[in-house]
Simulated assay, not measured.
Amino acid sequence: MSVSPSPFPEVTMNVEVERKFVCDPDIQKKLKDIGAVCIGQRQFQDQYFDTADFDLTLKDFWLRSREGCWELKCPVPKKTTNIQKDTKAEGLCSRYREITSLPQIKAELIKVMTERLAQANENTENDTGMAVCDPWEDWLKGMSLGCFAKYTTERCSFSLEEEGEEGAVCIDLDQADFGYCVGEIEILVPDGVDIQAALQRIERTVDKLGLSGDQRVQGKMDVFLQRYSPDHYTKLLAAHIL
C-alpha cells in the first residue's frame, strides 16, 4: 500500500542571530580593513502584514513579503545557557526562527491565529450561513491580514570569513527610502543549536570594527513605525516587543 507524502515536507529552519549598529562614514573602509569582502549591492521592497488588531506583531511574529518571496520570523527564547561572556551580547542581539516555505508559513499562522480564525468563521456563519473562505484559498484575506508597512532598502552586503570557523559572518549596510541607515551583523544557526558561538562571533566582529555603545540600536521597522504608525509602535513598546 502506498503512503501519501506529507503535505509539509520537513524543511531545515535556521535561527537568525543579529546585532544592529550605527553606520559611521568610514564603515566600508573598516570592513575592508578587517578582511570583509563586498559580495554585492541590491535594492528590494519589503511589505509586512498583520491584522487590524496586530495579532501577529504583538506576539513578535513578523510576516514579510520581499520581492514576492515570503518569510515568517518567529520568536525564540531570549535566554540561552552557558554564555561564557557577559550577557550584554544577548541583550544587544535579536534572534528569530525563520520560515521561508509558504505552506509552513500558512500552517504556523493558523496555529498562532487560531482564536481569530475561529471568531471570523463564527461571524461569517452568523452573517451569511456559510463558513469563511478556507485560509488556504486567498489566504491573506482569509486571515484578515493587510499590509501595515512598506519600504524600499538599498543594501550593500559584506562577508567575513574567520579562520577555524564554519560559515561566514554577514554584514549588511542598509539605507531605507525613508532616510534611515543601519548596519546589521548576522549569523544563521540551525534551529535547536546553541547560539553561544554565534553571539561570541558577533561580539568579536563588533570589537574588530571598533563599534562603540552598549545600547540597542533601532532597526528599520522600529523607526518606520515610530514615524508613520505611532499607535502601533506604542503598543509594541508596551508589550516589550520593541
Results as ranks from 00 to 15, higher is better:
residue 73 K to M: 04
residue 73 K to L: 01
residue 74 C to L: 03
residue 75 P to H: 04
residue 76 V to F: 03
residue 76 V to P: 05
residue 76 V to E: 08
residue 77 P to R: 05
residue 77 P to D: 02
residue 78 K to P: 01
residue 79 K to Y: 09
residue 79 K to D: 11
residue 79 K to I: 07
residue 80 T to N: 01
residue 81 T to C: 09
residue 81 T to P: 09
residue 82 N to H: 12
residue 84 Q to V: 14
residue 84 Q to T: 14
residue 84 Q to K: 14
residue 84 Q to P: 00
residue 85 K to H: 14
residue 86 D to G: 06
residue 86 D to C: 10
residue 86 D to E: 01
residue 87 T to H: 09
residue 88 K to P: 10
residue 88 K to Y: 05
residue 89 A to R: 01
residue 89 A to G: 08
residue 90 E to T: 02
residue 90 E to I: 01
residue 90 E to P: 07
residue 91 G to W: 08
residue 91 G to S: 05
residue 91 G to V: 08
residue 92 L to W: 04
residue 93 C to G: 07
residue 93 C to E: 02
residue 93 C to Y: 00
residue 93 C to V: 03
residue 95 R to P: 08
residue 95 R to A: 13
residue 96 Y to R: 01
residue 96 Y to H: 12
residue 97 R to K: 12
residue 97 R to F: 04
residue 97 R to L: 10
residue 97 R to G: 10
residue 98 E to F: 07
residue 98 E to P: 01
residue 99 I to Y: 02
residue 99 I to A: 05
residue 99 I to V: 14
residue 100 T to R: 08
residue 100 T to S: 09
residue 100 T to H: 01
residue 101 S to P: 06
residue 102 L to R: 07
residue 102 L to G: 10
residue 102 L to S: 05
residue 102 L to W: 12
residue 103 P to V: 07
residue 103 P to A: 07
residue 104 Q to A: 14
residue 105 I to N: 04
residue 108 E to P: 00
residue 108 E to W: 07
residue 109 L to G: 04
residue 110 I to C: 06
residue 110 I to R: 08
residue 111 K to M: 10
residue 111 K to P: 09
residue 111 K to L: 12
residue 112 V to N: 09
residue 112 V to A: 07
residue 113 M to R: 00
residue 113 M to K: 09
residue 114 T to Q: 13
residue 115 E to P: 01
residue 115 E to C: 03
residue 115 E to S: 10
residue 116 R to P: 06
residue 117 L to F: 02
residue 117 L to A: 06
residue 118 A to K: 10
residue 120 A to W: 10
residue 121 N to M: 02
residue 122 E to L: 13
residue 122 E to S: 12
residue 122 E to Q: 12
residue 122 E to G: 06
residue 122 E to F: 09
residue 122 E to V: 10
residue 124 T to Q: 14
residue 125 E to Q: 14
residue 125 E to W: 14
residue 125 E to L: 15
residue 126 N to D: 13
residue 126 N to K: 15
residue 126 N to A: 15
residue 127 D to P: 05
residue 128 T to I: 10
residue 128 T to F: 09
residue 128 T to K: 05
residue 128 T to L: 02
residue 129 G to F: 10
residue 130 M to S: 14
residue 130 M to V: 14
residue 131 A to D: 14
residue 132 V to E: 15
residue 132 V to R: 15
residue 132 V to P: 14
residue 133 C to L: 15
residue 133 C to N: 15
residue 133 C to H: 15
residue 134 D to E: 03
residue 135 P to M: 04
residue 135 P to E: 08
